[in-house]
Write a protein that binds this DNA or RNA. Structure first.
Lengths: 107, 107
DNA sequence: TTGATAGTGAAGTGAATGCTTCACTAATGA
DNA sequence: TCATTAGTGAAGCATTCACTTCACTATCAA
């Protein structure tokens, strides 16, 4: 339950929340348990769990439960999808500038 | 009024909405008037205006009003910021893999 | 076995979001 | 001049969201 293939809409929505971005930043250093994430963020374990669900469904985070501890780490998949989208939409500008000549002459 | 420097939180929030992504996709082809955007999307002019405000404040779109027509086009600035963020967070993986050796030995 | 510790699930709450309608202004063109 | 077209602003509404509390399960350690 939870894991889905990363879809750009989910990714943007997931990263649109500052708390979830904070979680991502913490995870860049190293994997954390859910409690370890909750501590400095000053929100409840429950809230963190809800954020993690969103991040996991976006493919940005992967979790694994051993005993009673769930370990959370970043998942490259979602970030790869995001990077691809961003690169394509930014790369568009080169093409757009190429087309500028046409626009100046045409419609 | 409206224009702000692109901030990653605004950008993610703006692109988290499917209707706004649809607007962005339409604008990739060419600039459009507000009405031209509203037509195929089947929402009111007002709603489009609200979306454009969000996109503009995120630095993803730029608008210019001539006479009674507001022309909307993509703004490279927001996309550049997004691409930088995405590249950095994806690029993290190389560094992470480098650090893997440490993790296998240490904490 | 018993008492912490780690996390989950359901339900509720207040705030933010996306959208609409209505009323209005400004430009255009017949 | 007068009807049409393009867009804006305010207000209202239903839905989604982020968060909490409370109750509960599972694991670990003494």
């Amino acid at each position: 339950m939870g894991k889905r293939e990363p879809e750009i809409g989910r990714i943007f929505h997931a990263l649109g929340d500052p708390m979830r971005r904070a979680i991502v930043e913490r995870l860049r250093e190293r994997p954390h348990s859910v409690s370890a994430l909750a501590g400095p963020l000053k929100i409840t374990l429950t809230a963190v769990g809800q954020h993690l669900k969103v991040l996991e469904e976006a493919g940005l985070v992967r979790t694994e439960k051993l005993g009673r501890v769930r370990t959370v780490r970043l998942d490259a998949e979602g970030f790869a999808v995001l990077e691809a989208w961003a690169a394509e939409h930014k790369g568009e500008w080169a093409r757009r500038l190429d087309r500028l000549g046409d626009l100046l002459g045409g419609e």
